[in-house]
Design a protein around this nucleic acid. Structure first.
Length: 286
DNA sequence: ATGGTTGCTCTGCAA
């Protein structure tokens, strides 16, 4: 005589087999990463070392700090990566490295950013995913012109999503957001309360972007605190784990459903001559 | 600890 539990076991087993079968014929695992490298030329050996070991399909870079003509494309090509770049001398600059073909490069900077002098956004489609790679303005300190520019930039970013991206598509927003969304993303919330990277207006402006329909892939798989993506070069911050989680990988609903893992790889922050940021990684079954 | 370090140059400035 079969009871309900035996029947459930039977169906459960069948479902698992079906899923494994579907995976073998249909699903493709795609690994996406983002890393503020603080000069792609100064950091080239570390980026190459990390790529060779971690082998993401896509790596979004911020603060490349070099013009497109000087971007070390050949070194990345040797590891099997094509580079789309949007850089400028000395400051800012973003790039996307991919081992999968780019089907489109849709946006360089925000359409509504009239001045557009600062190169902070690069959006491309790879493997059916529209990937928006951003270097959000730092803002320097609360109340400055740079702070107001940061808030305005985040407002334009939300408008960009409203006007140019579809909620039911595979959409990724990743990069250096220069905002720690919650106190759990801050090593000492009381010390940082109201300060740049943590102030309420910044958090609200970023929450408006998220409310378009994005999910923090890292938070899907990591609930606790004390995991950070940036540590100031000064005052032994990394040694004390005095960091903030300001680099993010946010995804639309369809990608949130297919996100099998996400993590921060803090190893490169301990290597010689590191960036002050470390990579954030997500794996998806497409 | 309103300090401290790093990168690229604008040997000051941005982060």
């Amino acid at each position: 005589m079969f009871g309900v539990e035996e029947l459930n076991d039977c169906f459960g087993s069948a479902n698992r087999s079906t899923k494994l079968f579907e995976k073998s014929i249909r699903l493709r695992e795609v690994k996406l990463a983002t890393w503020n490298v603080n000069s792609v030329i100064a950091r080239l050996p570390l980026v190459l070392q990390w790529l060779a070991a971690a082998r993401p399909d896509v790596l979004c870079l911020q603060e490349t700090k070099c013009i497109d003509e000087r971007f070390p494309k050949d070194a990345f090509a040797e590891l099997g990566y094509t580079a789309e770049t949007f850089g400028q001398p000395t400051y800012n600059g973003v790039a996307i490295l991919s081992s999968l073909p780019f089907t489109n490069v849709q946006f360089k900077n925000l359409p509504d950013d009239e001045a557009g002098a600062q190169r902070r956004l690069l959006a491309a489609t790879i493997e059916g995913c529209t990937i928006v790679n951003v270097y959000v303005p730092n803002g320097q300190s609360v109340g400055t012109d740079k702070y107001r520019f940061k808030l305005e930039w985040l407002k334009l970013l939300r408008r960009f999503f409203d006007e140019h991206l579809e909620r039911d598509a595979h959409v990724v927003l990743c990069g250096d957001f220069n905002v720690a969304p919650e106190d759990a993303d801050v090593h000492d919330p009381e010390l940082w309360r109201g300060r740049i990277l943590c102030s309420q207006p910044e958090r609200r402006a970023l929450a408006e972007v998220k409310a378009w329909g994005l999910t923090d892939a890292f938070r899907l798989h990591n609930k606790g605190d004390e995991q950070f993506s940036w540590w100031d070069y000064r005052a032994g911050s990394f040694r004390r784990n005095a960091g903030l989680r300001i680099d993010h990988l946010w995804v639309s609903e369809s990608l949130a459903e297919s996100c099998r893992a996400a993590w921060i790889d803090c190893a490169p922050r301990a290597w010689e001559r590191p960036s002050d940021h470390t990579p954030v990684v997500g794996e998806f079954d497409l």
